[in-house]
């Protein structure tokens, strides 16, 4: 079996592994004892430092339900742990898929849209794994993340798939490696940041008493505050990488096309995403700003990223010979 065929087959196994992880997460949800529907602890303590700004002290992260039937064993945490192990396996398979693809092509595995999505979702999966291991209290979000991974990988395999091809001369540049590496990294991280932002909105709505779908899912999600902070942490980490990636793209464009910025559709949407995420960081650091609004900005940011990744390649034609989709 050639390396590229191996890669193609591994992709489907990786998707199955993500599916397995998602099912384990589902078991965790199903078996989890419903906590009494507490509204988010209302009195967030506010301290006034000497001459400093007000600092909201975050309330306790998760209110544990008193064990209703102590003699019965709670299986949910076990399934939660298994789900993380399964995600780890899926990420490993995903990595092997991507690496064999790169080896088969004798270059970095992001020479066309299929490979690009493969790499972005790999970064997303790996970053999520780190979060899930370090912050068990948000582990359950994995159900959304593995779903997103499956959908994106399935879409990549079914719609975007292209044969292994060498790079066209326009892409033969070390700036290509620098630019695309950082863009892939940032996109994968934004993907992981998007999930807690969306889950925050659901949980926060649930805490405010909403019970319609999708808020009905909120009761079993991690605490709103923890998710909001996680989302901010990831997105604030991704933003400078994105900035660097866009700047490196401009340096490359200068060498390749003679101008560092030309408002090509891809450049335009990179700019839009950048401005939206800058807006997110602004809104988030404005204490009076409603956190729901802040989370919505993050969602819009992710939609602009998707638009750039898929929409621009399908709807517009630009100079980015990258798409590889006819």
């Amino acid at each position: 079996m050639s390396l590229s065929t191996l890669s193609d087959n591994l992709l489907y196994i990786a998707i199955l592994a993500y599916l397995g992880a998602m099912m384990l997460h589902t078991a965790d949800y199903a078996l989890m004892r419903r906590r009494p529907a507490v509204a988010a602890p209302a009195e967030a303590k506010v301290l006034v430092g000497a001459g400093g700004p007000e600092v909201a002290v975050n309330p306790i992260e998760d209110v544990q339900a008193p064990p209703a039937a102590p003699e019965r064993r709670d299986w949910a945490p076990l399934f939660g742990k298994l789900a993380v192990w399964m995600t780890g396996l899926a990420v490993l398979l995903h990595f092997t898929t991507t690496a064999t693809r790169g080896l088969a092509a004798h270059r970095m595995p992001w020479g066309n849209m299929y490979e690009f999505v493969l790499s972005v979702t790999l970064v997303g999966g790996a970053a999520w794994l780190v979060v899930a291991i370090r912050k068990p209290q948000v582990r359950r979000l994995g159900i959304v993340l593995t779903l997103v991974e499956m959908l994106l990988l399935g879409f990549a395999g079914l719609v975007l798939y292209t044969q292994v091809n060498p790079l066209v001369p326009a892409l033969q540049s070390y700036w290509f490696v620098i630019h695309v590496t950082s863009v892939v990294l940032a996109s994968g991280l934004f993907l992981v940041g998007f999930v807690p932002s969306a889950a925050f909105l659901i949980r926060d709505g649930y805490d405010a008493g909403k019970r319609r779908f999708p808020y009905s899912l909120g009761g079993r999600l991690p605490a709103a505050d923890a998710m909001e902070r996680l989302a901010f942490g990831i997105q604030a980490f991704a933003f400078p990488i994105w900035t660097f990636g866009v700047a490196a793209g401009a340096v490359w464009a200068e060498a390749a096309w003679g101008r560092y910025w030309g408002w090509d559709p891809k450049e335009t949407w990179a700019f839009i995403s950048w401005v939206v995420y800058a807006g997110y960081l602004h809104a988030r650091s404005t204490p009076s700003m409603n956190r729901r609004l802040v989370a919505w900005i993050a969602i819009i940011g992710w939609l602009t990223m998707l638009m750039n990744l898929f929409g621009v390649n399908f709807f517009f034609t630009g100079l980015h010979s990258y798409a590889g989709v006819q």
């Binding site: 408002w263 559709p265 335009t268 949407w269 700019f271 839009i272 401005v275 939206v276 800058a278 807006g279 602004h282 809104a283 404005t286 009076s288 602009t304 621009v312 517009f316």
Partner: peptide, 22 residues
């Protein structure tokens, strides 16, 4: 508050305004 709000609104207008360009 006002200046951060203004900055935010303008940032969003800028993002919106770029869309027809693509």
């Amino acid at each position: 508050l006002t200046s951060m709000r203004t900055a935010l609104v303008l940032l969003f207008l800028l993002a919106l305004a770029a869309i027809p360009g693509s």
